[in-house]
Design a binder for these strands. Structure first.
Length: 352
DNA sequence: AAACCGGGGAT
DNA sequence: ATCCCAGGTTT
């Protein structure tokens, strides 16, 4: 427990780096500590691409997308030259689709205004679309060893435990940033990655393997009975369920009707099957659909997803020309559409 | 400062 | 079912 009378314990970055030299994870975008010692420098494009994909996303989910993007677009110039639609198609399933739009916009800014070279410092990086406090610091530290505090969810947890922080992280970020900044060594990039690896493998959300941790000697939480009691979390506000319809419209050949969502809001600019406005409550199969393309529709499924409840209505249409805003597609070719997971599941259920 | 934005994996 | 994740943007 921190008191006013005692300074928080300093973070022993030497211990952390020693641990990292022995236990660094192997990741597709990472240059190992050994290779860095031999002079290998990370490619800012790859680091940026990985960091954006890893925003609120686990390594397991992001890695195959990272490898696919690198295969399709091995340089920032290649990505900038790609149609936005192609980027959205490849991003489909990864979530938080504003990231994909910002990724593409950022690539174009780097090419058009920075001669294809990412800025080499955190302050300049943060001006780019989709790059905030965390990502700018991570790129600058990892690629250029800029001595900046790289504070992500993992590191927040490590520090909240190290300091036995009694307030929610949200209210103590400046303190955490100061304490972390105070510890940043010359090997800033390895230190940043080391702290994140610690949070991922030793000081995990539900498990704390304190006997293996290089910070254990000075850790306030390790000295207590339950280190995993930190970080303390504020009571989260619960949000109401939203209701709507999804209309799976097929023609006689089995093609389904798809269209593009608006450029803002939920799943912006992505592909969808037609959906209704938000409804105050479920309507059930008797609900009158005021649309001449819906002659024989029926509810085939109720789909629940992320505080969203969609009644899936299926209908077969003889005359394609009744629908003109979108296009018809073979659902077996869903890979080539910018379809979020939600609509992939809706289609799979409705066509099962 | 708080709300919004998706999805998957672990428990 | 609930929590959490290599957060950023908008209001």
């Amino acid at each position: 427990m921190m008191t006013d009378a005692s300074q928080p314990p300093a973070i022993n970055s030497t211990s952390v780096l020693d641990w990292y030299d022995r236990h660094a994870r192997t990741l597709a975008w990472r240059v190992s500590p050994e290779a860095r010692r031999q002079g290998v420098r990370p490619d800012p494009y790859r680091v940026w691409l990985s960091e954006v994909m890893l925003q609120q996303t686990t390594i397991g989910a992001a890695t195959r997308y990272y490898l696919r993007f690198l295969e399709l677009w091995p340089s920032v110039e290649a990505l900038a030259a790609a149609p936005r639609e192609a980027v959205l198609v490849e991003w489909a399933g990864l979530g938080y689709y504003a990231r994909a739009r910002n990724l593409h916009a950022c690539a174009q800014v780097v090419v058009d205004e920075h001669q294809g070279v990412f800025p080499d410092n955190a302050a300049a990086l943060m001006k780019l679309p989709g790059i905030g406090a965390y990502t700018s610091a991570a790129i600058a530290a990892i690629c250029h060893d800029e001595p900046v505090a790289v504070l992500d969810g993992n590191v927040e947890r490590v520090l909240a435990r190290y300091l036995a922080l009694e307030t929610p992280v949200r209210d103590a970020k400046p303190l955490l940033r100061r304490e972390l900044q105070r510890a940043v060594p010359a090997r800033a990039g390895d230190f940043a990655q080391a702290m994140m690896d610690l949070g991922a493998t030793i000081c995990a959300p539900r498990t704390a393997l304190c006997t293996l941790c290089p910070l254990q000697p000075d850790c306030c939480a390790a000295a207590q009975s339950e280190p995993t009691a930190y970080p303390v979390r504020p009571a989260k506000a619960e949000r109401p369920v939203r209701y709507g319809h999804a209309y799976v419209i097929c023609d006689r050949d089995g093609d389904v009707y798809l269209r593009t969502r608006p450029d803002t809001g939920l799943l912006a600019a992505m592909t969808e099957v037609p959906t209704s406005e938000w409804l105050p409550e479920p309507t059930g199969p008797g609900y009158p659909i005021e649309a001449d393309w819906h002659p024989s529709g029926r509810v085939v499924h109720v789909f629940t997803h992320f505080r969203l409840e969609l009644e899936v209505w299926r209908t077969v249409l003889d005359d394609r020309s009744q629908l003109t805003d979108g296009w018809w597609s073979d659902p077996r070719d869903a890979r080539s559409e910018a379809l979020p997971s939600l609509f992939r599941k809706v289609l799979a259920q409705a066509l099962d």
